[in-house]
Simulated assay, not measured.
Amino acid sequence: MKAIAQDSYGTVDRLELRDVERPVPKDNEVLVQVHAAGVDPSILHLMTGKPYIARLALGPRKPKNPVRGWDLSGVIETVGAKVTRFEPGQEVFGSGDGSLAQYACAKADKLAPKPDNLTFEQAAALPVSGVTAYQALSGKARPEPGQKILVIGASGGVGSYAVQLAVAQKAEVTAVCGPAGADFVRALGATHVIDYTTGEITDSKQLFDIILDTAGNRPLSLLRRALAPKGVLVMVGGEGGGDWVGGMGRQLGGYVLSPCLGQTLSSVIARVRHEDLLALKELAENGTITPAIDRTYPLDEAVTAIKHLETGHPRGKIVVTV
């Protein structure tokens, strides 16, 4: 089968479209014929093997699985011996290791039936980013009507879902993005927009009940100045920081400080789960969230898609069609 693969960690130039063996599902997995795959920053971590601490799971010297990608949507080809939740021919979406390929294996507990009202491309844009936003705003941070919510990185994959989820709870959302994303985030429901190229989140002296930071490039001290005395900060993922621990160092600092403060400094490293995918399926089908797709690329241009992610500022998600 055709797949986007790499033999060693490094830049996007290490990636290539080539023939690899079709994977065989384990007892708790299914084999999915991939129709579309999402492209998000997690692929850059897979590609570079950074932060280095991630290699404990990815492979210390080279990738355990050379095929890149997580997000997918498609049709189940075969099911493992212990899988009872799904059957061949069923349309699904979720997370599977090596989704930038014609076929990928996925654990049954990381899949759900595809939302009826979404295309395969839209469904592939939903799993990792959608679950991340959902978990970030359903844990310690739960938007309530009238609360003031700041979403940093609002025009990206996670941010675009977070804006929609907060607006659905009738919160007042301020979105932080570049100038090209302003109209986009307003269309998602943001009331106010901060252009990070000309202003900072502390300029207006506005204090926020919840700050969701998906960018990872602001120090805790700055974020805390924009946070209400009893507010909740949620740091998403491991962006920013150095090569060894990335943004996890800042997150650990938040956990150390939080018990000493009235503010809650928390973080989310999302795990795609069947029950959360079912929640997203319902939210998509009732119109609460709609996947925003920046561009789609065919599989043979997936390397170009990853370069666009690396050098551009996508509005929503990038999707590869297979």
Rank of each mutant, 00 (worst) to 15 (best):
L252C: 15
L252V: 14
G253Y: 01
G253T: 08
G254T: 05
G254H: 05
G254K: 02
V256Y: 08
L257D: 15
L257Y: 01
P259E: 09
P259N: 07
C260F: 09
L261Q: 10
G262C: 14
G262Q: 12
Q263F: 13
T264L: 09
T264G: 00
T264Q: 09
T264S: 12
L265Y: 08
L265Q: 08
L265V: 11
S266A: 15
S266H: 07
S266I: 03
S266P: 02
S267L: 12
V268F: 03
V268H: 00
I269R: 11
I269L: 10
I269Q: 11
I269S: 13
I269F: 11
A270P: 02
R271H: 11
R271G: 03
R273T: 10
R273I: 10
R273S: 09
R273A: 13
H274T: 07
H274D: 03
E275N: 13
E275M: 08
E275H: 07
D276G: 02
D276M: 01
D276N: 06
D276F: 01
L277T: 08
L277V: 13
L277K: 10
L277R: 12
L278D: 11
L278V: 12
A279H: 04
A279C: 08
A279L: 13
A279R: 15
L280Y: 03
L280E: 11
L280F: 02
K281V: 00
K281S: 09
K281A: 06
K281Q: 08
E282K: 15
E282H: 11
L283N: 00
A284P: 02
A284V: 10
E285M: 14
N286E: 12
G287R: 10
G287Q: 11
G287D: 05
G287Y: 06
T288V: 10
T288I: 08
T288D: 07
T288E: 12
T288Q: 08
T288H: 08
I289H: 01
I289E: 06
I289N: 00
I289R: 00
I289A: 06
T290P: 00
T290Y: 07
P291R: 03
P291D: 07
P291A: 09
P291K: 04
